[in-house]
Design a protein around this nucleic acid. Structure first.
Lengths: 211, 211
DNA sequence: TGCTAAGCGGAACAATGCTCCGTATAGTTA
DNA sequence: TAACTATACGGAGCATTGTTCCGCTTAGCA
C-alpha cells in the first residue's frame, strides 16, 4: 500500500525528472535556516509568533518565507511534520504492543496530548476554523484520523468502549481540550482528556437531553 | 443580599448620588441601538464580526461603540449577559428540581452547551487567552464557576461522580469542546460533551499516564 | 567572463482592534 | 428664548499582522 514514507526528504522526489528541477543551493540553505528559526521562535514565543519575527530570527526577508511556505500554516506544518508522523506511526505500534486496544488508545492519546500541550498555541491554531489555518487543520486531521479510527474501532470491536464514537470528532475534541490558555495553571488539559477517554468506556445511559 | 439583579438597568445605580450622574438621552439611546445591532450582527456573522460592521449596522461611529463598551469583549458580554445570568440561575434550580445531583449536572451542561453552540464563535472567543478577550473570559468563568462547583460537589457528595473533579477545569473543558468550527457538520460538540460528562461518572481506573 | 532563471528583501496592501480629537448637541441656566 | 458647557459623536488615523508584489541580486552554467 502507498504508505507514508516520511522522514528524510532530500530533494522532494529526486527520481521524477523534470517535475522538480532541484532548488538552488541558497534556497535549500534558507529553507533549513527558516525551519530552525521557526522552531526556536515557536518554543519561546509560541506558535502564534508573527511571521515577521520568524523572518527576523532567520535573517531573511518576508518574501523568502512566503516563497518556501505559502502560508503561516504551511510553515507550522513543516516544523512539526516529523512529530506528527511519529504520532501517526505510534498508533499501529501501540495497538500491536499493548495488552488491550483500549490501553493502546489511552496511551496514544496521552502521547498526542503531550505533543499538543508542549507546543504553546498549536492546539488553538489547529482548531480555529479560519481560512488561514485551513492547511494545518487538514493536514493534522487527515494524517491522524485513520490512526485514531483504527484504535477506536479496535477498542469498540473488543467491547471495551461504546460503538458509536466518531473517530474524527474524538480527535477534534482532544485537540479542543488542549487548546486555549495552556499556561493557565488552573486548567489541566491532560486531566480533562482523561475524563473524555473514560467517558468512551462508560456504558451509554439515557441522557436527559432536553433539546 | 447584593445579588445579581440583572435585567432592567434603568440608570445604573440611581440611588448613589454623584457616583453616576445619569447619561444623556442620546447616549442611552445609542447604547440600546448598539446592543440590538450587535446581537443581530452576531446572529448572522458570528461573534467574530468586525467592530466596524457593528458600528455600521447601528448607524454610529467607531468612537461611540468604544465609549459605551471599552473593548470588543465588553460588548459581547453586554449582549449575552442575560443568557449567562439565566444559565447561572438555572444551576440551583435544577439541583432543587432534579431527581439526582448528577441528573441536574447533566441537564445544566446541556443547557450551557446549547447556549454556546448556537452563538457561533462565542466559545472560541471565550477560550482564546489573548488580552483582548480577557474580560469576557473572566466574566463567564467568574459567574458560572460557582454554579458548576455546586453541581459538581453535590454529585460528588452523592457518590455519583468521582471526587477529584476541578469545577473550573470542567467548565473550561466544556467551553473548549464547543469551540472551533461549530458549523463543521462532522463535529458534534454535544456528543463530545456527553462523553466528558459520562467520564465524570466513570470509576477512576489506573491510567497508564506515562508522565 | 557573461548570461539568465531562480531567489531575495522589504515596501506596500488589506483587515482589524483601538485611540484621538475636532465638532455637534442635550440639558441647564439666566 | 438664548447662551453656555459638559457630554457625546464620527471617523480619520495608528499599530499589528498575514500576504502580495516587484525591482535587485546571485547561483549555476556555457
Amino acid at each position: 500500500m502507498p504508505a507514508s514514507q516520511h522522514g528524510e526528504v532530500p530533494a522532494s522526489g529526486a527520481d521524477i525528472e523534470s517535475a522538480v528541477p532541484r532548488k538552488r543551493a541558497d534556497a535549500r540553505r534558507n529553507e533549513q535556516t527558516l525551519l530552525a528559526a521557526a522552531a526556536a521562535v515557536f518554543v519561546t514565543d509560541g506558535v502564534d509568533a508573527p511571521v515577521r519575527d520568524i523572518a527576523k530570527a532567520a535573517g531573511v526577508g518576508m518574501g523568502t518565507i512566503y516563497r518556501h511556505f505559502p502560508t503561516r500554516a504551511d510553515l507550522i506544518i513543516a516544523v512539526y511534520r516529523h512529530q506528527v508522523e511519529a504520532c501517526a506511526d505510534a498508533g499501529p505500534a501501540l495497538l500491536a504492543s499493548s495488552a488491550t486496544p483500549y490501553a493502546a488508545l489511552r496511551q496514544w492519546v496521552d502521547m498526542f496530548v503531550d505533543f499538543l500541550v508542549t507546543k504553546h498555541g498549536l492546539a488553538g491554531t489547529l482548531q480555529s476554523g479560519d481560512t488561514r489555518s485551513g492547511p494545518l487543520h487538514a493536514y493534522f486531521l487527515d494524517r491522524l484520523r485513520p490512526v485514531v479510527a483504527a484504535l477506536v474501532e479496535a477498542a469498540a470491536a473488543a467491547g471495551q468502549i461504546r460503538g458509536d464514537v466518531d473517530p474524527f470528532g474524538f480527535l477534534y475534541a482532544v485537540g479542543n481540550l488542549c487548546a486555549g490558555d495552556t499556561s493557565n495553571p488552573h486548567y489541566d488539559a491532560r486531566a480533562m482528556v482523561h475524563l473524555l477517554v473514560a467517558g468512551l468506556a462508560a456504558r451509554p445511559q439515557a441522557q436527559p437531553a432536553g433539546g
